[in-house]
Nucleic acid binder design. Structure first.
Length: 423
RNA sequence: GUGCCUGUAGCUCAAUGGCAGAGCGCUACACUGUGGCUGUAGAUGUUGAGGGUUCGAAACCCUUCAGGCACCCCA
């Protein structure tokens, strides 16, 4: 305990219990991705800073990235997002890939932000994208993947919802109000802030941005109109497809969903937990038409979303949806009766492992009481003992720690007896 | 990067300027061939760290670190 060096701010240490949560999320992510036929891939964790500088704002590169100069003098950064790497990798092999391309990934990312609940500086993120098809039906598939994940972890439509909007729809509504194209970004930010400001201040802010009173009233009408999607052919087709895919109950139209990202061009969506303490998005994504052209590739449209493990983990924990933590993968503890029986215990454990049973041997001939206590704490189901009596008759004592029953069986029958109990 | 709140035993927390405590957990024994339950006993500690005020600081002041909340941002 002499050393007091702390972990880096905003990082998390994965003790076995947290590791189990991370793996749980990973398994569910993989299952949902593979159910729809997506391939797993990954990109480097360290990238040249220019990869992001080209497309992203100064905020990202200068303030929110872990950047450093390597020993060769190159400026590099721990990846803050995956999409630029995706765009580069596709552009590099654009002609030889098979489209539509369906790729997913789950890996670490770093952002130099102020840590708080649901936001750390080092986190894992699920990214999933389909490229090469530009249709609302493809958008619907990605939303269905997201819904499939939510369902698979036990988040019902009452508990989690995916809110959908469409940039093109909003742009055309803005046009109708006479809001010029140059103001769209400001108006998007305005919409994003609506839930965070009180309405009088929000109105004042809108007028400050140069909207007329008539435009402001019109904007409020749009943002309150939850049937607006019926004006969009894309969204009508999207919702029809979601119906067919069996996930319509998870999805709601919401004209207030804008998303900060500049590169979204069509459908955008965000998932939220509806009742919990966290008001952060579980996942978010949308359609991007220009991404590849922006990095020098041939035009290629894509749709995708990302989900961070931090928010997802907190929500699952608070909702009580995590499976019970299993401290050890060992199904069996082989006790060590005393020093003279020690090697017998090792022989027995080796026999069990050969038969495919995960088995742990207590590391020393301690009092049996202590060994059983250990087995209990590790939630091991069975304790096996070879004492002098059992050894003399080529037998093994099997105690079922869940029921307290103990039986003594012939050595050659041990594996089948264990399998009978453990299943 | 900004503002506010918090930091005490392994964990959850008490002690508001006067001897650092409780519950849970932990260790030992009852129980030297068997866990959970019960009983008895025991140890919990640089009060996040560093400095200052004071006869005396866990408490008040300053600095710093970490966490939380709200900004910023959310690629």
């Amino acid at each position: 305990m002499a050393s007091k060096i702390q972990p880096v701010k905003g990082t998390r240490e994965f003790y076995p219990e947290q590791m189990a949560l991370r793996n749980f999320i990973y398994e569910k992510v993989r299952a949902a991705s593979q159910k729809f036929g997506y391939q797993e891939w990954d990109a480097p964790f360290i990238e040249p800073i220019d990869l992001y500088a080209a497309k992203s704002g100064e905020e990202l590169v200068k303030k929110q990235s872990f950047t450093f100069t390597d020993r060769g003098g190159d400026f590099v950064t721990l990846r803050p997002e995956l999409t630029p790497s995706l765009a580069r990798m596709i552009a590099a092999k654009q002609g030889e890939l098979t489209y539509p391309l369906r790729w997913w990934s789950f890996g670490p990312f770093w952002r130099y932000e102020q840590p708080q609940k649901g936001r750390s500086r080092e986190f894992f993120q699920w990214n999933i994208d389909m490229l090469g098809v530009n249709s609302p039906e493809a958008d619907a598939e990605l939303i269905a993947v997201a819904a499939t994940f939510l369902r698979s972890v036990g988040l019902t439509p009452e508990r989690a919802a995916i809110y959908v909007n469409n940039r093109r729809l909003m742009d055309s509504e803005f046009d109708t109000l006479g809001i010029v194209a140059e103001k769209r970004l400001d108006v998007s930010n305005l919409v994003d802030r609506r839930t965070k400001m009180d309405s009088a201040k929000w109105d004042a802010y809108a007028l400050e941005l140069g909207l007329s009173q008539a435009q402001l009233d019109g904007l409020k009408n749009i943002l309150g109109n939850f049937d607006l999607w019926k004006n969009s052919d894309e969204l009508v087709r999207l919702f029809a497809t979601l119906e067919a895919l069996g996930v319509r109950d998870y999805v709601k139209f919401d004209p207030n969903i804008m998303r900060g990202l500049l590169y979204y061009t069509g459908t955008v969506f965000e998932a939220f937990e509806t009742s919990g303490s966290l008001k952060r998005a579980i996942m978010g994504g949308g359609r991007y038409d220009n991404l590849l052209a922006d990095v020098g590739g041939q035009p290629l449209s894509g749709v995708g979303f990302a989900m961070g493990d931090v928010v997802a983990g907190i929500i699952l924990q608070e909702a009580g949806l995590l499976p019970e933590f299993v401290p050890t993968p060992a199904a069996v503890l082989v006790t060590v009766f005393d020093e003279s029986m020690w090697l017998k215990s090792f022989e027995l454990a080796a026999q069990l492992r050969d038969a495919g049973v995960n088995a742990m041997v207590f590391p020393e001939p301690a009092k049996l009481q202590k060994q059983f206590k250990f087995a209990d704490k590790m939630k091991i189901k069975l304790a096996l003992t070879v004492g002098p009596d059992e050894a003399a008759n080529a037998q093994v004592a099997i105690k079922n720690l869940m029921t307290g029953e103990q039986i003594t069986v012939k050595r050659e029958a041990v594996v089948s007896e264990i399998q009978k109990i453990v299943g």
